[in-house]
Design a binder for these strands. Structure first.
Lengths: 177, 177
DNA sequence: GCTGGATAGTCGTTTGAACGACTATTGTTC
DNA sequence: GAACAATAGTCGTTCAAACGACTATCCAGC
């Protein structure tokens, strides 16, 4: 068959449809680039970032426990399937589950000593990760970035779960009108 | 067995390990929240956001073509497997592939009329999506957010691919030292 | 013109996410 | 107290991402 397509790439002028779209795509790309470093750290320890977050949450309430859904509500990103996420942690002996006697529908999850050990072992790497990712920005810039990100997602937060999340803006005063 | 765990959730004081970590987690959560809207729009059209981006890129060079890897380099987020992403678009008849005659290793991809139609059909939804996601922020804030996101990922961009990406900061002047 | 290395893309397999249907338990209403 | 809805969690299935091994082609050097 004859080749009708040119074999040369030509320059593009993409431009975004709108400022809002550009902001979202920048957000997406930035997240993706930073996440790359992230994954590298965690997969060296046989764990995912999401699983680490669950452990971090459970460690913060230790020696108490949280219901399955309470853990889910506190995770950074929504996770459809808490059951299987916790299954994997339980298989590794990092968390333990126990059905609540007062309300047998709920299952309480707590971190084990082995789980605490994993989080502690990761602590230094996680600290370094933060520096690697964003250490080149000064504190004022970081605060400003955080503030804008919070404002960006504010209308999209579920009021029911926002209270459970550490970074929620509630109670904070807006800097500008 | 005796129930040794309390069946009550107790309040947490999570706090982030560092400002850098907080910024990254805020970025993650914000991306996740905004992405939720995103997915809703595209899955109504039987396509993923990543696939839409590939189509958008190919439409911008129409009627020219791009090599498989050139499309990958211009995508918002790194995609490990261009082959299968394009496979799916080709199955739906939205793109067509042709092996380059001059260099038979490369495969050129171009968008079909059906592909253009899909992008056009989505245009209104995508426009509305932007407003839904970030329409509550004024233009100054959006620009500032974009600028900070670019600075956040600047050190993590591969110099080889950054040139291919529309939002690259190259050529822009830094506002602050 | 043959060999080794680089490049472009493809494919097999494993793993995790997404969506929805399903079970068990509790609370509500008449 | 039986029926129905709501809640908490589990599980089956389907789909996409991740990782690496593999093929085909080209280029460079001898």
């Amino acid at each position: 068959m004859a080749t009708s397509q040119p074999c040369r790439t030509r320059p593009v002028s993409p431009a975004f449809d709108s400022l809002e779209q550009e902001a979202y795509l920048q957000l997406w790309r930035t997240y993706d680039r930073l996440r790359e470093l992230d994954e590298r750290v965690f997969q060296g320890h046989g764990i995912t970032a999401q699983q680490y977050n669950a452990l971090r949450i459970l460690k913060s309430v230790r020696p108490g426990a949280l219901s399955t859904s309470a853990v889910g509500a506190r995770l950074i990103s929504r996770a459809a399937d808490m059951t299987r996420l916790l299954d994997k942690l339980e298989e590794q002996g990092l968390v333990s589950r126990k059905r609540c006697e007062e309300n047998r529908r709920v299952v309480y999850v707590s971190i084990t000593a082995a789980g605490v050990a994993v989080v502690n072992r990761l602590a230094a790497d996680v600290k370094r990760l933060g520096k690697d990712q964003l250490g080149h920005l000064d504190r004022r810039t970081l605060r400003s970035l955080i503030d804008m990100l919070e404002r960006a997602r504010e209308p999209h937060e579920d009021p029911a779960t926002v209270a459970a999340w550490p970074g929620s803006r509630q109670g904070k005063r807006r800097v500008e009108a």
